[in-house]
Design a protein around this nucleic acid. Structure first.
Length: 800
RNA sequence: GCGGGUAUGGCGGAAUUGGCAGACGCGCCAGACUUAGGAUCUGGUGUUUCACGACGUGCAGGUUCAAGUCCUGUUACCCGCACCA
């Protein structure tokens, strides 16, 4: 009989569906396993092989865990709000909801084609009101707790599209879509105060099992720095605060710099003799995009404030103040004390403006270049700090500043608040009413969901407002508080919103009363294993952790961290090792592979392609190797010995393979797991195999290639589904060979091998080694001064 | 500039963490079956040498009986962040 993969795969997919074998229910006395993949954005291109890699990996893990007796939750859904759908809708004059429906259907059928064991009863979609009701509810909670606020923010403004862009949409300083210049504009935006959770998000990393590189990337993104806030009095009679990580270098602070957006510039306008010049500089700085401001950093620019100076608190020296765009308003206090002797940027600036450069940590020659190796070192030119080591000086100066009331220890973070507004249609409406009298008034909970209204045109408005602002009958409402005329917020939420809590909804997706029941969340949460792409490490992963910490703080969820373990897969590249893209024409569609080789081959190859965590290039020829493997499995069926027993000849290899596959799946080493099953098949072909031998191989291969193995399992005459049989166990004793081939080295070089009983004594091994013909040639005229025996491995004879 | 990572045959990649480098697969070579083969099966395949052997994990040193693995230095490439005080 021929291996008719298309017939077989359809047959078993229908059976799994009919028998609902992957449906998950709360079973309190069974250990649970919640496996999560990042739900996809259902784009018009359909599922591509890049999706198949992580989905197949966790499908394998889930199927295995299920057979090990775990109660497995492996759900799937759609992160369906977002720009591409909206743009497609604009271009083709269709409703984004219709586009979404079509794309979801396509994605779903593709997932089914690949035989994934998703529990489809728990399918969710972020664009459905039943779902986004709860996204809005969480927003209201954040608002209620002061973590959502509206603020004027500089935003990225595309001069051609006339709309606000997210940071991610600005690539190399230009608009990702149209290539036009992007400039900064002040705009009122909804913000989420993720900075309030900076320390918690940092601390939480200690309790989770994430790859080190993911933790490091999150730590760097949060960017905690310890230092001090120092007050500089000015001759204008007020106090200029700065943040510094190096208060010990205060004696070297020979000038100060304000960011062009610093409020003191305006405050001091009367005293500044060159206020016009300063304003002009600030205007130019504002016109520069972030990109320009950082790219064109070779040349430091700035203007001295003529009319105000600061007083260095440790030596009471009068020092000049400058404005320069190398100081950012968004970090620290927007003002710095400049220590040109020990900071590259300050040094460059001081050189250009001919400012004094003072060495305060001994070591370099600050007239030639800044001396930066100052984590340790001795203080000089620093008054009472002279002679102290750096760490000691840090303590001493903070103490002194505290006594003077001019400074306190301070921690700063690079993390900034989350810009939560989008002036777009296809997103969750923000459930706020703007009342001229009462300000921002939240919708009442019972008025949720605030349903996205239909609109005639999704085109953006000239003013950069959301298309929602065009629907006056939707916008104009009564204020829930005072009953007066008010307007709805017309901004929508970013795509990150729906994905920040979706894993909670999976635990109880049809609940109409709560985002999920306490019982369901208590049982299923936290997610045991979350796999996703490295590109989501700093945004999605951080955002969702933030929401979860918040939900924990208000008592909605019972764990601080949402994900116990996180792993990341590498990208799938095109045949030549380049990124797959339509323009290169190297995109592989999984449907084509399924049609030509079958889903089992597709699954097997995508796992065999290489190290799961690293990028891998697709190879059209290598796919065939996996098909060949399945063909050979299929063909072996006709040559089996009719015995249910495990054959003696294969027993050791079988136990070794069970051990290898069992362990490798848990470590995501799918490529070597498959290699070991290929080896076992080779063994079977050499030695012959019984039905018992063969059954074990089918059981191991089942999570990887679930369809063909079910079919062969049935052909063998077994009752019931293979997918429901227990995972095979191995006997450690039986993984050990009775005979072992020992390597024999002379002076560390391999000269021969000898096969001996595994329980041979060291003496016996050494004797056998010395007797070996080839070895004799190398030791004949020498005496052996030392022998080293590595049990079960090798002998090394040291001869002189 | 800062942070992280990678480097092994013609190719994708293995190597129980210091113990036979190149598992497994692709490709290639030879043979078998065949009217035919881009199907299948069998054998071979790191380089070099007629052979014994010698050499071989980006490069240069070192530690060790023994190094792809540990240490020091160095180069190239990839990813993330980037004037963060």
């Amino acid at each position: 009989m021929k291996y008719d993969y298309l017939r077989i795969e359809k047959k078993w997919q229908d059976i799994w569906d009919d028998e609902c074998i992957f449906r998950a229910e709360v079973e309190p006395d069974k250990p649970k396993f919640y496996a999560l993949i990042e739900f996809p954005y259902p784009s018009g291109n359909g599922l591509h092989v890049g999706h198949a890699r992580p989905y197949t990996a966790l499908d394998i893990l889930s199927r295995k865990r299920k057979r090990e007796g775990y109660n497995v939750l492996f759900p799937m859904g759609w992160d369906a709000f977002g720009l591409p759908t909206e743009n497609y809708a604009i271009a083709n004059k269709v409703h984004p909801a219709d586009v979404t429906r079509e794309n979801v259907a396509k994605f779903k059928s593709q997932c089914k084609l690949l035989g994934y064991s998703f529990d489809w009863d728990r399918e969710i979609n972020t664009t459905e009101p039943e779902y986004y009701k709860w996204t809005q509810w969480i927003f209201l909670k954040l608002f209620e707790h002061g973590l959502a606020y509206k603020a004027k923010m500089p935003v990225n403004w595309c001069t051609s599209c006339k709309c606000v862009l997210a940071n991610e949409e600005v690539v190399d300083g230009v608009c990702e879509r149209c290539g036009a210049d992007v400039e900064r504009r002040e705009k009122s935006q909804w913000m989420l105060k993720i900075t309030a959770y900076a320390q918690k998000l940092l601390d939480g990393l200690k309790d989770v099992d994430y790859p080190e590189r993911v933790k490091l990337q999150q730590e760097n993104w949060i960017g905690r720095s310890e230092g001090a806030e120092v007050d500089f009095n000015t001759d204008a009679g007020d106090v200029l605060k700065v943040f510094t990580t190096r208060p010990d270098t205060l004696f070297g602070a020979t000038y100060m710099v304000l960011s062009p957006e610093h409020p003191y510039l305006k405050k001091w306008s009367d005293r500044l003799n060159n206020y016009e010049e300063i304003c002009e500089y600030a205007r130019q700085a504002a016109h520069k995009s972030d990109f320009e401001r950082s790219e064109l950093n070779k040349d430091k620019t700035g203007v001295r404030l003529d009319g105000v100076s600061a007083i260095n608190p440790v030596n009471n020296e009068l020092i000049p103040i400058y404005v320069s765009d190398y100081v950012l308003m968004t970090y620290g206090t927007g003002a710095i004390m400049a220590v040109p002797g020990h900071d590259t940027r300050d040094w460059e600036f001081a050189k250009k403006f001919d400012l004094p450069i003072v060495e305060v940590v001994a070591g370099g020659d600050v007239s030639i270049e800044p001396y930066l190796d100052t984590e340790t070192g001795t203080m000089v030119n620093s008054g009472f700090l002279n002679g102290m080591e750096v760490p000691e000086a840090k303590k001493a100066i903070i103490e002194r500043l505290s006594e003077l009331g001019l400074g306190t220890p301070m921690v700063n973070y690079k993390l900034r608040d989350w810009v939560f507004s989008r002036q777009r249609y296809w997103g969750e409406p923000i459930p706020i009413i703007n009342c001229p009298k009462c300000g921002h008034v939240p919708l009442r909970e019972e008025d949720l969901p605030l349903v996205l209204p239909d609109v005639d045109s999704y085109e953006l408005t000239d003013s950069g407002e959301s298309p929602l602002s065009q629907i006056r009958e939707w916008v104009e409402v009564e204020c829930p508080k005072c009953g007066g005329p008010a307007e709805r917020e017309t901004d929508t939420m970013p795509q990150w919103a729906g994905s920040s809590w979706y894993f909670l909804r999976y635990t109880d997706p049809h609940n109409t009363e709560e985002l999920a029941s306490q019982k369901a969340m208590d049982y299923w949460m936290p997610v045991d294993w979350y796999n996703g792409g490295m590109e989501h490490t700093t945004l999605h992963l951080l955002y969702s952790r933030f929401w979860h910490h918040f939900l924990y703080d208000i008592g909605v969820v019972s764990t601080k961290e949402p994900y116990k373990k996180r792993t990341s897969h590498g990208m799938i590249l095109g045949d030549g090792g380049e990124k797959m893209s339509k323009s290169r024409g190297n995109v592989i569609n999984p449907n084509d592979i399924v049609r030509e080789y079958g889903a089992d081959t597709m699954r097997l190859y995508i796992m065999f392609i290489g190290d799961f965590e690293k990028a891998a290039a697709w190879s059209s020829t290598a796919v065939k190797g996996c098909k060949r493997f399945l063909d050979r499995i299929w063909n072996l069926y006709g040559q089996l010995e009719n015995s249910e027993k495990i054959s003696k000849a294969n027993e050791t290899e079988i136990h070794k393979t069970i051990k290898k596959v069992t362990g490798d799946i848990e470590e995501l080493k799918f490529n070597t797991a498959i290699a070991s099953m290929m080896s076992l098949l080779n063994k079977f072909q050499d030695n012959g195999a019984t039905k018992g031998d063969y059954s074990i191989l089918l059981q191991l291969l089942n999570p990887f290639a679930p369809h063909i193995t079910e079919e062969l399992w049935q052909m063998l005459g077994h009752d019931g589904l293979l997918s429901a049989t227990p995972w095979p166990a191995y006997d450690e004793e039986k993984t050990k060979d009775e005979r072992i081939t020992f390597a024999i080295q002379v002076n560390g070089k391999l000269r021969s091998t000898v096969e001996l009983d595994a329980d041979s004594t060291n003496d016996e091994i050494v004797e056998a080694a010395k007797r070996d013909e080839k070895v004799q040639r190398f030791i004949a005229d020498k005496s052996i001064v030392k022998t080293i025996v590595v049990p079960g491995k090798l002998v090394n004879l040291i001869a002189k």
